[in-house]
Design a protein around this nucleic acid. Structure first.
Lengths: 154, 154
DNA sequence: GCTTGTTTTGCAATTTTATTTCATTTCTGT
DNA sequence: ACAGAAATGAAATAAAATTGCAAAACAAGC
């Protein structure tokens, strides 16, 4: 994992807000030619500093899915079981995000469903049918005050 | 807010995974010409179905920020105070995400900081100095099992 | 069920952007 | 200071996005 320099950081800072910015524009902003910017971006992708390039969609236009924050407490902390559960969460399309955390609960999930019926079925699939889940608590999101994946840049 | 058709959904499905996919590729996949795809994408952006186009960065390369999930319980549910608090969270760069939720707690935050010292200072700024915050609970993320903004498409 | 007006489409042409080539410059380590 | 490696800019090329326009698909009214 090679280190990044100040110019790389500036490029990332621009791209994580708008990855449609042209290389010429970026070059002008940071004092490099377009090809130099291009080569750096290729390298940043190859090394994995840029993990993906995505369009952020507005849920309003997609049947207004319901966002639910779920806290999951596990029965046992056996690594094998934890990993199996992680894998299950990862592969469930409705699970938008999953964090394995310290503290009273073990997982915090951000789940998106189109109906509460769908959520009800999902809870069976993910929690009731998993004997290692001790309990879970759901909080319905009334307002997605801030949503993003922006990482603060040093 | 005008409705989307099946082709729009297919385009969004592709773009929310990889917005660098060329219009020709998308066209081939869904049976449209590149210009037709182009015009639909422009429209989807204008109407706000596509909210942003971003690069997803790998925190590993950015000084390995610590991800913390915070549950915040408010003192009073006065709308004016809630809105002020929302605004504060929204404007704090370390707050990557903020959900206003039903249930025992009022807010769930995803926070990224570079050091625990930074977090300690942030808790003062956001929580201790806000008289309407009754209590808050922090969970450190040990594994970002799944991270994304993907919305399930109908 | 036909006609008219509107919208959407595909093709071709144009423009813009990304990528490659290559000589030169800048860095690095000795 | 010097050799080797890496990064750069200018120019050329390739690829992609965008535009103009005629034809096709669609919808509403008669």
């Amino acid at each position: 994992m090679q280190a990044l320099d100040a110019l790389d950081y500036k490029i990332l800072e621009v791209l994580q807000v708008n990855n449609m910015t042209s290389q010429r524009d970026i070059g002008d902003q940071i004092g490099l030619s377009a090809p130099a910017v291009q080569r750096r971006i290729v390298r940043l992708r190859e090394m994995g500093a840029i993990r993906a390039d995505i369009a952020v969609l507005n849920p309003e236009y997609l049947g207004s899915p319901i966002t639910i924050v779920v806290q999951v407490e596990m029965e046992a902390d056996k690594v094998a079981l934890i990993n199996k559960t992680k894998e299950k969460f990862k592969q469930t399309p409705q699970v938008q995000q999953c964090y394995y955390v310290t503290g009273e609960v073990d997982f915090i999930l951000i789940i998106l469903v189109h109906t509460m019926k769908e959520y009800e079925m999902l809870t069976h699939e993910l929690f009731f049918n998993n004997p290692n889940v001790k309990r879970f608590k759901s909080s319905i999101s009334m307002d997605m005050v801030k949503v993003g994946l922006t990482v603060p840049i040093p």
